[in-house]
Every structure is written in structure tokens, then in C-alpha cells.
Design a protein around this nucleic acid. Structure first.
Lengths: 210, 210
DNA sequence: GGATGTGAAAGTGTTCACAGCC
DNA sequence: GGCTGTGAACACTTTCACATCC
């Protein structure tokens, strides 16, 4: 395998391809071409082949890709053959919804704890998960070997919570707060900013009128 | 104003700048340089200046930018001087949380309706909003002049719901379902895929071990 | 024949570095 | 002197087009 710098956009598409392959696999289709994948997920066929080429040669010339095999390769590339444990900090509307969201389990992520600092919330149940005081976080992270933390607290508390997560050895953070966070180089950070997404729509809607 | 093609990454950053300016403004700071903005949001100062230069000359050489003015320009560029009305389809965990999420109102977005097709959910209240049958959507969209639709239904129903939204004249769609949607050219679509984001973290976490 | 894998070309976005202005 | 605004250089990503192989 060559060690090139892989574009982040490629990783995003690989995740999309993998889900598309799961869908195709369920239909019982055995073979698929880059062109068919491309049409299914809305990119070019060359793009599909280039993305896959970063990681190896998975297809057969003149034929295409074996659906089951390709799915397996994609899951392995994405690191989804092991189950990742994650914790959520912030048990407001968003944090609670994320804790109960079924989509994570489907792809092998397991929520092992949700934390808050509001005494009125501590002890409440979300499905099978009890909201715990943030002071319990170190114990839960260690016991479950959680590696991913989700931040669903208000902007003002986001950096503080981030520091706690990092101190407890978490190496990946998904930030839902509308605040730019600083993290050390060895921690992966992704921002899912709901307002930013609406504002992008606003920009293009408004632009249509100009 | 020049009409260049503006990178989408620029729009995302403008949204981030605008929120940072709101924060700075609250502190009572009057003037700020591109370098200070850059440090605050984690980009380069040249990037800040280039992004702004697409839309005009807002600063004063040797001095910097007036915080209040720049904030106003950014809000105008982003189309946030008018209030956008939006509807949410899907009143599951995620849709319900979004309906009650305070962050939207803060930036001038108003949820005017939430819809589902599950009879058990119809009539239930989320804060002041009653969950309605999807058949009521056309009426609500028209009465409120809603322009934005949020999709929070399972993957299988996502394209169908999208078609309904488009038929009712919505021009912008925020898709939370893990499905690639097709929309006409005049409809703006953004995807917020929670699992994709976790899978990107998974990829980089796994890569650390290699 | 047909679809992959891949260098080369085109296109897009970011950084550099400095002229211009306060 | 200091900071903006911007053309030019650079870096990165996508598309093209075709040799390669089943």
C-alpha cells in the first residue's frame, strides 16, 4: 500500500460508499461497476476509482467490484471492524437525542455514558442509560475504554469539557457546540455545526434573489 | 461587487467569523485585525482577508475592521437579516430535538411546523409546537412562507419526503438522513450525516495505530 | 468488449509576499 | 509602522483519457 496523503473528502465519500454497498448487498447484488456506484451516490466514476485506488486494487478489469468484498474492504479501511465506545457530555435536547439515536449502533458505535452537571438531570434515564454527573466520566471512560467523546454542551462550556475529555485520554472529539475548539495534534476533532449548515442554506437562498 | 465563484469553504468560514464577531462584540471590543480573527477561529490571516475580499472592502489599512460593522456585513452576506421559516419532517428522537433546539432561534431561524406519519405521534406537543400529520404540510408551508425543510426521517423514506418538500416549493433542504438525495438544480441541499462524522473519527483513530 | 487503475491535464482553493493606504 | 487588499505562486483535488487486464 502506498502512503500518500489522503484527502479528507475521500474519507467522507468512502463512508458514503460503504453505506451504499450495504444497501446494494441487502438487495442481493453481487457485482457492481464504478459507474453504478457513482450514479448511486452522486459522484463521477473516476472519482470512485481514484478514492479506492488510495487503498489498493479491489476490482476486476472488465467486470467491476464484488459487492460483499468491497463492503468488507471499506469497513476495514474506515476502522469499523471493531466496536468504538463513546461518551456524550451534555444531556440537553441534543445530547439526549444523540444518546438515544439508533443510527450509531447500526454502524458499530456504542454510547457507554452520558454526562451533565445539572443536578436535576443526574439520575434520569434515557432508554437504558442513566445521566451521570460529569465527575463520573473518568471512571466510565476507563472501564469501557471509550475513545470518542461527543460535546453537546453550550458554547461557553465547550472548551472546558474538551479539556476534560482530553485529560481522560480520549483521542477523538465530535463537537456539536457552536464554538471553535483547540485540541492537541494527536486528538482528532470534527465539528458538526447545525447553525452553520442552516446559514449556508440561507446564503444560497438569499443569493438566488440577487 | 465582483461576481466570482465563491468557494463553499468560504461560506462556512464566514458563518464562523460572524459568530466570532458576535462574541467579540459582546465583549465591547471595537476594532479587530484579520490576525486576531484568524487566531480566534483557527485559520490564517490571509484566509480571513481573502474570504472577506470576495464581498467588498470592509477594513481600514493600518487599523483593522470595525467589529460592529463587520458583524453587520457578515449577517447581510449570509442572508441573516431576514427571519427564515423552516419545517421539520420526522418527529423521532432527532427531529424532536431539532424542533426544540434553541440554537436556531438565536440565529434567526424559526421552526413553524414538525410533521410525522405515525398516528401515535400526531397531536403530541414539543414545547409550543404540535406534531402534525404530513398531510398538513402544504398548508403550513404556504401560510408561513417557509423556505427551508429539514429531513429527519429514516433513510428509506428520505427521498419520498424530499419530493414532497420540493413539490411544495421549498428551495433549501437540510438532510439528516443517511441517504444520498437527488434534487433539482434550483434546490440547495446540505447533508449533515452523523454517522459519517463518527466514521471519519474512526478512520483517523484507527490510522494512529497503523 | 468492457471496466479498472492511473499518469497527465485541468480546475479549485490556499498561502505568500508586498504594494497601497491609514 | 502597521494592517489591509490582492496578484502571483503554490498546493491540493478532480477530471480526462487511455493503457492494461479479465
Amino acid at each position: 500500500m502506498k502512503t500518500l496523503k489522503i484527502p479528507e473528502a475521500t474519507i467522507i465519500r468512502l463512508s458514503v460508499y460503504s453505506r451504499y454497498m450495504a444497501q446494494i448487498k441487502r438487495k442481493g447484488i453481487v457485482t457492481i461497476s464504478s459507474g453504478e456506484i457513482a450514479r448511486g451516490v452522486g459522484v463521477s466514476s473516476a472519482q470512485v476509482r481514484k478514492d479506492l485506488a488510495y487503498f489498493g486494487e479491489f476490482g476486476t478489469r472488465g467486470v467491476g467490484y464484488n459487492v460483499g468484498e468491497l463492503y468488507g474492504y471499506l469497513m476495514k479501511i474506515l476502522g469499523l471492524t471493531t466496536q468504538w465506545k463513546l461518551v456524550i457530555v451534555g444531556a440537553g435536547k441534543l445530547g439526549s437525542a444523540l444518546a438515544m439515536y439508533g443510527g450509531f449502533a447500526e454502524r458499530g458505535f456504542k454510547v457507554v455514558g452520558i454526562f451533565d452537571n445539572d443536578p436535576r438531570k443526574i439520575g434520569q434515564k434515557l432508554d437504558n442509560l442513566e445521566i451521570m454527573d460529569i465527575s463520573q466520566l473518568p471512571k466510565i471512560v476507563e472501564a469501557n475504554e471509550a475513545k470518542i467523546g461527543i460535546i453537546a454542551v453550550p458554547a461557553e462550556e465547550a472548551q472546558e469539557v474538551t479539556n476534560i475529555l482530553i485529560k481522560n485520554g480520549l483521542k477523538a472529539i465530535l463537537n456539536f457546540s457552536p464554538r471553535v475548539l483547540s485540541v492537541p495534534d494527536d486528538v482528532v476533532l470534527r465539528n458538526v455545526d447545525l447553525s452553520v449548515n442552516l446559514e449556508i442554506l440561507s446564503f444560497y437562498l438569499d443569493a438566488q434573489k440577487r
